[in-house]
Design a protein around this nucleic acid. Structure first.
Length: 116
RNA sequence: CGAGUUCGCUGGGCGGCCGCACGUUGUGCGCAAGCAAAGCGUGAGGAAAGUCCGGACUCCCCAGGGCGCAGUGCUGGCUAACGGCCAGGCGGUGAAAGCCGACGGAAAGUGCAACAGAAAAUAAACCGCCGUGGCUUUGGCUGCGGUAAGGGUGAAAAGGUGCGGCAAGAGCGCACCGGCGGCGCAGUGAUGCGUUGGCCUGGUAAACCCCACUGGGAGCAAUGCCGAAAAGCGCGGUUGACGCGGCCCGCCGACGCGCAGGUAGGCAGCACGGAUCGCAAGAUCCGAAGGUGCGUGGCAACGCGCAUCGCAGAUAGAUGGUCGCCGCCGGGUGGAGUAAUUCACACGGUACAGAAUCCGGCUUAUAGGCGAGCUCGAACA
């Protein structure tokens, strides 16, 4: 992901995105990973950050706002805990980051996922 | 009521909507492993934390003894065990309730003690005091001897105070006090009390050391089992290339079968165990760790008996997100009341912190709240 994907930085988290077929996958396409490093805080803070990001993605998926064919990695930033962000703020930011993903790499014809 | 102190408890609640993990039930799909959606049940803490002690459990090592190393260190008890807890003793501290203490040994040995001071440990004479000799310009100077009472130094100076005694002094003698030893009494004991003796041996052991007691090593990433893919080895001789190549044979590859190793990964450990019945799902019974309640023994820690429950198991790590209402705390504004107080409104805050094999402790973090005991002070009756 780090090599292949693009990367955008927000206030609460960093988004890494790569075409799902660019990396051989086992679990199918549209995978999402969350990174909450120790710099974010203790176990309580890291759990909080991960839950917020996961809940935001779930809400976006329910509203069908996730672009298909992308693998995503979300990296929590200090501010997500330090600034006491709510789920709505995190969701807005991820939506904004996803828009940038689409602008930078528009409408490629979806190739079939290269599942070995 | 105020100030202090000890012990114990608690550490948000309710409801929508949308989710997560595990278990389980029947259903659907699938040859199967399994995968789906649905129902039901369960789902973080007093510290889950630090990983500082002690156990359970697992593997490795293991004749017996010694040396070494590490830990503990008043006494008695509790406990599976402990460096933990309870009770007691002693010392320190506080006006008291209380709090604090690695609290064995310094007459086994070795070492160490800056600065100051004459001297810091087989005592010691700087000033001073006393005796005596010499010199003398009659102010003193000086030799020898005695002396630890006084001065001064220091964290610490060879028991303390008083009286006697003496040339001056000194446990030199006596009284009281302190310390040490013996004896008696009380106590399981630490120790306390009494009595007696000679007249006394400085500090430091979280310095080496001595004494007593305890301790094999490593840890759930322990350990056991299964085990891809790729590579490897063996066999087969269906097939292809090469060796003059049609057959045999050799060799290389494909294909098929097998093999060990044990990587990725998975399962067990690990989320109670066992027995009986049943094809199974499950049902019934018995019992453990542990929780709760009652009774009981003990000052207490804790033990015993009965009843009842017997309770999270993720694997980059589930136990949540969001909205509304309420509670609690804080100061503010306004109203009521002599006042304590109380009502309303908006605002701000609501901690520390997230299981990872499981228990018993310790330590540290923590907004706020509740209960009980004790001490001192003030006021009232």
């Amino acid at each position: 992901m780090r090599k292949e994907g693009a990367r955008w930085r927000g206030r609460f988290c960093i988004l890494n995105a790569a075409r799902a077929f660019s990396i051989p996958s086992v679990g199918g396409e549209g995978r999402i990973g969350y990174i909450t490093a120790k710099r974010v805080g203790g176990a309580v803070q890291r759990n909080r950050a991960r839950r917020l990001m996961r809940e935001a993605i779930r809400a976006l998926a329910a509203a069908d706002e996730l672009p298909p064919g992308w693998d995503l990695v979300l990296i929590a930033q200090n501010a997500i805990v330090a600034d006491d962000a709510g789920m709505a703020q995190v969701k807005d930011e991820i939506r904004w980051l996803l828009k940038k993903v689409n602008q930078a790499n528009p409408a490629e014809p979806a190739k079939p996922a290269t599942n070995r």
